[in-house]
Design a protein around this nucleic acid. Sequence first.
DNA 1: CGTGGTTTTGAACGCTTGTTCAGTTAAACG
DNA 2: CGTTTAACTGAACAAGCGTTCAAAACCACG
Lengths: 185, 185
Amino acid sequence: MRAAALALFARHGFAAVSMRQIAAEVGVQAGALYNYTPDKQSLLFDLMRSHMEELLEALPSNSAAPVTEQLEEFVRFHIAFHDERPDLVFIAYMELRSLEPDNFAVIEQLRGRYETVLESILQIGAGEGAFSVGDTKVTTLAIIAMLTGVTTWFRPEGRLSLRAVQDQYWNMVHRMVTVAPERTV
Amino acid sequence: MRAAALALFARHGFAAVSMRQIAAEVGVQAGALYNYTPDKQSLLFDLMRSHMEELLEALPSNSAAPVTEQLEEFVRFHIAFHDERPDLVFIAYMELRSLEPDNFAVIEQLRGRYETVLESILQIGAGEGAFSVGDTKVTTLAIIAMLTGVTTWFRPEGRLSLRAVQDQYWNMVHRMVTVAPERTV
DNA sequence: CGTGGTTTTGAACGCTTGTTCAGTTAAACG
DNA sequence: CGTTTAACTGAACAAGCGTTCAAAACCACG
């Protein structure tokens, strides 16, 4: 049921999908769904919360490694993890406004934790002189927006392999946080 | 009416907003709206299409200038333009799936035109040796995703001025497309 | 086969949806 | 002021919504 709901939410949006559609996808009547979820809102919330928790749990935090390697690991992890769950990523970013206030607060907090991990790496790197960033918060959001955008177009069977995409994004992020060469073009 | 619909669509999503809510916001009965739009779908489509057309029309294309300046102009333009119309940008990216297939195709094509402008700048710059990019398509999408993400957090009365945000994003984009210095950190 | 416990059905509830339209109200013009 | 034109109302329509629940179907175990 969660899989069916996820696919439908991702394709049509939470508000546009009815319990009857989900039930039909599962091959069951609408009433039967209520043995597995108290209501429609909880269905969305559970999907989002478990996704964010898995994301945080899977996130590598090798704080012993050099910051540049930590950053590279973060970039590659983000792309790879999100590639495995495109629908979940999609609704986690798109359906925030469909959450009731209490549920929204929970998800927002989990998201904040994730962003903080990246921001910490940038701050430490900036302190060590390894990175040159302006505002770390802005850089954090810029990187995450850029990485998350991958899910909107990346398809495993497409022109570029996952590895190639990771390489290119790491290249771009690496340049972004490193001082540019002094030269006139 | 368009303004009311826009605000509500942006806040709650197209599917979650009813014609009666829009009418109430305008201070009118639901039936009166049908003097101005044939149906709800057209309301969304018209908002999105006029937005994309204004975007393309406002886009500066100073092809005589050096590519680096063209790129800078694009970055600053994108941020400034989107800052003036946060709701429109939001729905133009979020409500694509609420469009019927024919309408979707139209908007998608307009979006493609916009992306092509940026990609052309990158390609020319790469050809001239001014830029060092891997895959231009990937770089294009990465930059646009990064820039568009600004609207999710930027508030004019916030900590950073529009100008400061533009400066920082231009800095990041500039580094992204320029060869990094050869040095060990 | 019979019995106990889950699951699922299918109908129903009250409510909202997008849209239509005859009838009322308001505005514009001579 | 009278008339024409435009705008809006308010009720109605069929359809769909999330959710509930008694009754039926299913399943495992003795």
